[in-house]
């Protein structure tokens, strides 16, 4: 699973890939054939999609479900510049909620957006990238999803 991360657009840290890089949550990601994507759980009974996957469908309590890829692109619902936060993430950093076409709101770090207060607009198009989120106490790089503004000429 880990090797596929090299293939992703927006991956910043390919060259430093080593044993001390860890996915923030293995169950959040899967390679569905074109690189690592966020993996939601889709209920086979009602079709509802949830992220992260739930143990049963929160709508109909049915345990039968399959993993489905979530869209890589979404809309920036809102954002803020945080000057404080959990250890391991250098401050300040930009956070946001991103709305995916599946109707899912994701909390996310927002990246590649400097100067943030000029670049970012509520409602703009953003896309998912895989980047280092933070370092843990043992010095491991914790890798996960972030969103960035969709680069020009790449709608």
């Amino acid at each position: 699973m880990f090797d596929t991360m090299d293939l992703l657009p927006g991956e910043e840290c390919v060259s430093t890939r080593s044993d001390n890089r860890k996915l923030i949550e293995e169950g959040w990601f899967r390679d569905f054939g074109d690189g690592l994507a966020l993996a939601g759980g889709q209920c086979l009974a009602c079709g509802g999609i949830f992220f992260p996957e739930k143990p049963v469908c929160p709508n109909c309590f049915d345990p039968a479900r399959k993993k489905v890829p979530l869209s890589r692109k979404g809309k920036l619902h809102t954002f803020a510049l945080s000057h404080m936060g959990p250890g391991g993430i250098p401050t300040p950093f930009v956070i946001g909620f991103v709305e995916l076409p599946e109707g899912i709101k994701l909390f996310s770090l927002i990246t590649q957006c400097e100067p943030w207060d000029k670049v970012l607009k509520v409602g703009m198009d953003v896309e998912m990238v895989i980047e280092t989120i933070r370092r843990d106490e043992e010095g491991n790089e914790i890798v996960g999803y972030k969103f960035r503004p969709v680069p020009e000429g790449n709608p």
Binding site: I24, E25, T78, F79, A80, P86, I89, G96, F97
Partner: peptide, 30 residues
């Protein structure tokens, strides 16, 4: 902060840079 945002939880937001001021700043911007 760590008690509130729950490093030990599987909940996705706290581990990814969220905090109480963050949640309300996001609401303010929207």
């Amino acid at each position: 902060l760590n008690v509130f945002t729950g490093r030990q939880h599987a909940e996705r937001d706290g581990d990814m840079g969220n905090s109480a001021p963050g949640l309300f700043a996001l609401m303010a911007r929207r």
